[in-house]
Simulated scan of single mutants.
Amino acid sequence: MGGLVVVGVDGSASSLTAVETAAREARWRRARLRVVHAFLWPAMHVPLGSSPLGPPEGGIQNMVENLVGEAVARARSVAPEVDVSHAVVTGEPLTVLEAQSRAAQLVVIGSRGMGGFVGLLVGSTAVHLSAHGKCPVLVVREAGDEAGPVVVGVDGSVMGEQAVDFAFAEAALRKAPVRALHAWTTWNAPVPAPQDAAAPYANPPGALAGQEERLVSEALAGHRERYPEVAAEHQVVRGRTREALIEASHAAQLLVVGARGRGGFAGLLLGSVSHAVLHHAHCPVAVVRGSGGRH
C-alpha cells in the first residue's frame, strides 16, 4: 500500500469533483494526495500581482492560491486522514500532468476544465493525458452508480490485460464486483489459418463465439485467484465494443479500458474505443496505459 495520487485542478466545478474522487482513491490506497495546478500565465509574461487600481486581494497569483486552497480544503473534508499536499507548476496542463504521472500510481482529472468549449464533452487535456500519461488516468465524468460493478473491457491485448489487472485491484479497494465485458464481431475477431486450404470456411459455425469465450476466461483466470474476495462475472456479446461498453456504463461505478486494443494501429496512442467512452460513458472512466504504482 502507499504511493501517490495526483489530481489536476483549475478552479472549475469539474476539477473540484475530481478532487473529491482523488481524495477517496488516496484513502483507499493509503496513499498521499498531491493537488496540482498548471500555472500557464508566468510563461506568457502576464503580470501576476494585483492591479494598482484594484483590490489588494486581486490578481492572478491570488486567484491561483485561492483555487488551490479551496481544492486542498475539499480534499481534506472528504478524506481527513489523507496526507494532502499541493504544487503550482509553471507550464501547460498536459505537460505538467504528464510529468507528474511519472511518479504517481494514478492521476485524476475532471472531464472538462475552465477552458472547455460549449458542447465539448471532454476537454483536450483529459483526452491527451489519457493517451500520454505514464500511469492510469481516471477521468471523472458523471458520478456513476455507487452500488454498481467496476466494468472492464476485455480484448486480449497487452493493454487490455493491464486494464483487467487495474479493474480487479480497484474493485478490491472499493469492495465492488467486477464485470468483464468482451464484444466481438467477425471483423475484429482474429481469424486463425485454416487447417485445410480447401475448406470453404476458416472457422466452422460457432467456432468464433467459443474462441471469444475462451479469450475472456483466460484473461480472468489469474485475477480471480489473486483477488478471491472480488466477485467477478463476464459477458461476451456480439456487437461493437464502444456501444457495448457505453451501454454497460449506465449501471457501473467505474469503467476501465486499455488505451489501445488489439485492433489499434501502430503508433496510435489512444484507440477509438477509449476515445469514444471518454466522451460518452455514463460513469467515471479509467484509461490504463502505464501500470503506475502497485496497489
Rank of each mutant, 00 (worst) to 15 (best):
M1T: 15
V5C: 06
V7W: 01
G8A: 14
D10Q: 12
G11Y: 10
A13D: 15
S14Q: 11
S15W: 00
L16C: 03
V19S: 03
A26H: 03
W28N: 09
R32H: 10
V35N: 00
H37M: 04
F39C: 06
F39H: 15
F39Q: 12
W41I: 01
M44W: 13
V46L: 12
G54A: 15
P55T: 13
E57S: 15
I60F: 09
Q61D: 13
N62I: 05
N62V: 03
V64L: 10
N66P: 00
L67W: 07
V78L: 11
V82W: 03
A87G: 08
T90K: 08
G91N: 07
E92I: 07
L94E: 15
L94S: 13
A99E: 15
I109W: 03
I109P: 05
S111R: 14
S111C: 13
G113V: 10
G115H: 12
G116K: 04
G116V: 12
F117C: 04
L120M: 14
G123D: 03
S124P: 08
A131W: 00
H132V: 09
C135Y: 03
R141M: 07
E142L: 05
E142K: 13
P149E: 02
G156T: 12
V158S: 09
M159C: 08
G160W: 02
A163W: 01
A163K: 00
A171T: 07
P177A: 15
R179Q: 13
L181Q: 13
H182W: 11
A183R: 08
A189Q: 01
P190F: 07
V191M: 12
V191Q: 14
P194K: 07
Q195M: 12
Y201M: 11
A202R: 14
A202W: 14
L208R: 13
L208Q: 15
A209H: 15
G210V: 02
E212I: 13
V216R: 02
S217K: 15
A219N: 00
H223I: 01
H223A: 11
H223Q: 14
P228N: 11
P228I: 10
V230P: 10
H234D: 09
Q235M: 07
V237P: 00
R238N: 05
R238V: 01
L245D: 01
E247C: 03
H250A: 14
L254H: 03
L254W: 02
A259R: 12
R260A: 10
G261V: 09
G261Q: 03
R262L: 13
G267K: 09
G271W: 11
S272K: 08
V273W: 04
V273D: 08
L278H: 06
L278P: 09
P284M: 09
V288L: 01
R289N: 13
S291K: 12
